[in-house]
Amino acid sequence: MKQSKWNILSNVCIAEKVWKMVLRGDTTAMQPGQFVEIAVPGYYLRRPISVCDIQDDCLTIIYKTVGHGTDLMARMQPGETLDILSCLGHGYDLRKAGDEVLVVGGGVGVPPLIYLAKQLRAQGKHVHAVLGFNTEKEVFAEEMFASLGCKVEVCTMDGSYGRRGVVTDLIAKPAPFYYACGPLPMLRAIAETVGTNGQMSMEERMGCGVGICVGCSIETKKGVRRVCKEGPVFDAEELIW
């Protein structure tokens, strides 16, 4: 955990209710799948947001406006600063990947997979990204994966962009080791139809984000685990559905 001030370099809307913010600060030791906790002025608890990309001393986050706190974040301007806790939680274990890797993201679960894919590509892995959204207006990140040299497939629930359907429709079986992040029903469907040979990033309402309040604990096959501390990334086989 590191607590520091970050300068906002840019903050733009990239899809419906989805914003991309680039901040400058101390990016050392941040791992794919970890998250940051952002103090939003006027709101008591911090907002946990996944690390989307790291480039030198710049951190990219992609967040959805889901309430007053994130609405306020969306109105913030370049030059403003944010108090952020960084290097939180345990991210994806890259050592588990074979030469062929699948990354599966749904909605605003997609962002952490971008930094992950970047690191996997740097190791020379073949990365197949399967991204699911509700509808065309919510689609983002396709070109980010493409520019990293990943094979990208997109589906939407209503068929307005890419293939109609859900991510599990696009995953050939048997699937290689996967990394997933997205809404709970998507993760459950992956576990049921693709299997548990992968890692999943979980989401839960958090108090502290640093492991002290145990507000975000979930029961797993290995016992009680804090999403903010032992997670957010868990081996899929540990999770109870």
């Binding site: 709101y43 008591y44 608890l45 309402r205 108090g207 309040c213 507000g215 975000c216 604990s217 009680v224």
Partner: peptide, 23 residues
């Protein structure tokens, strides 16, 4: 284990609710 999640809720600028339940 305590109570089921979600067990944290924010209350604007003034604080938060918890229902951890003695984990």
């Amino acid at each position: 284990y305590g109570n089921p999640v979600p067990r944290i809720a924010e209350c604007g600028a003034t604080g938060m609710l918890n229902a951890v339940g003695l984990q």
